Simulated scan of single mutants.
Amino acid sequence: MKPIKTSLPAGTYIHATLPGAHFADCYQMDDLWPDKDAFQTYLHLTGRTPGWMNALMAMRNQAVRLVGLKHLGAMAATDATRPASSYQLGQRVGIFSLQHLEPNEAVMCDDDKHLRVELSLVKHVVDRAPKVSLSTVVHLHNGLGRAYMAVVGPVHSLIVPLMLRQVAHA
């Protein structure tokens, strides 16, 4: 199963955040957990984040500390046994805060002085097959955000599909 790059799902919360965005992408793959809602699937995916991705996040956290950006921690929620139903809007979930929640879409975000990033997991049906779409939308706040995305943007486009493939095979 190979994630494919596609457009953000129309009619979703994340799609509505596109105006003014400086970066946006979406990767779609088969829904390997059709019995879970969007947020449960997000927790399931991030809970299987490969070690190399957490190592990259640790390197990122050390590097950006030098310019006063937030230390985000690791991708996965810190308590793997915590049920999805116990999370409330605004609470931290790994490196993001839970922003929007519907059965078919979960949106997480982080807003720092340089940029605002929103990540959405949408569960939907495409050509009669259950799919998951993972979308990222970034709004830049300043020159530091532009410099950050000049480095992170190209890397993001390589890492996300690789991570999704590895998570799906885990």
Rank of each mutant, 00 (worst) to 15 (best):
V151E: 01
T46A: 09
G153M: 03
Q88S: 10
V125E: 09
T12G: 03
G73M: 05
K36A: 07
A77E: 14
M53Y: 14
Y148C: 05
S86Q: 10
R92H: 11
A21E: 11
D30P: 06
L98E: 08
Q88W: 00
I95M: 15
A74I: 06
A147E: 01
L98N: 05
S157W: 00
D111T: 14
V93F: 06
L89H: 04
K113I: 11
F23V: 06
D25N: 07
S7T: 14
V137W: 05
V126E: 15
K2Y: 10
V125D: 04
I4W: 02
R82M: 04
M75F: 15
E105N: 11
H15N: 13
H15I: 00
A150D: 01
G143S: 13
A147H: 02
Q40I: 01
Y13V: 02
T17R: 15
H71Y: 12
I4F: 03
L18C: 03
G145K: 06
S85I: 04
H124T: 12
E118N: 13
K123T: 11
M108L: 15
P9A: 05
L32Q: 09
H100W: 08
G94T: 13
K113M: 10
T12L: 03
L72K: 09
V125R: 05
R128F: 06
F23N: 05
D30V: 14
T6V: 15
L162A: 14
L144G: 12
V151R: 00
A58P: 00
V152N: 04
A106Y: 04
D31I: 10
R60D: 02
A58F: 01
V67A: 04
D79W: 02
L144V: 14
Y27V: 06
A76N: 11
R48E: 01
L72M: 15
L101H: 08
N104H: 13
Y42L: 13
T12Q: 08
Y87D: 02
A10Q: 14
A129K: 15
I159V: 15
G145F: 03
A150R: 12
L32Y: 03
L101S: 06
L32A: 08
S97C: 13
G153F: 07
A58D: 13
V125P: 00
I14P: 01
R165I: 04
L32D: 10
W52C: 09
R116S: 14
W52Q: 07
V160C: 03
F23H: 13
A55N: 07
Q28Y: 03
L69E: 09
W33G: 00
F96A: 04
L134A: 06
R65E: 12
D35N: 13
Q28E: 15
V167F: 02
P103F: 09
A21P: 03
H124I: 05
K131Q: 15
A129H: 13
V137F: 04
Y42D: 05
A38D: 06
G90F: 09
A150F: 10
K2G: 00
H71K: 15
Y87I: 03
H169E: 13
T6A: 09
T41C: 12
S133E: 10
A106Q: 07
H100E: 10
Y42S: 06
A76R: 08
S97H: 14
P130G: 10
T17F: 08
S157T: 05
A170K: 09
Y87M: 04
C109Q: 14
H15D: 13
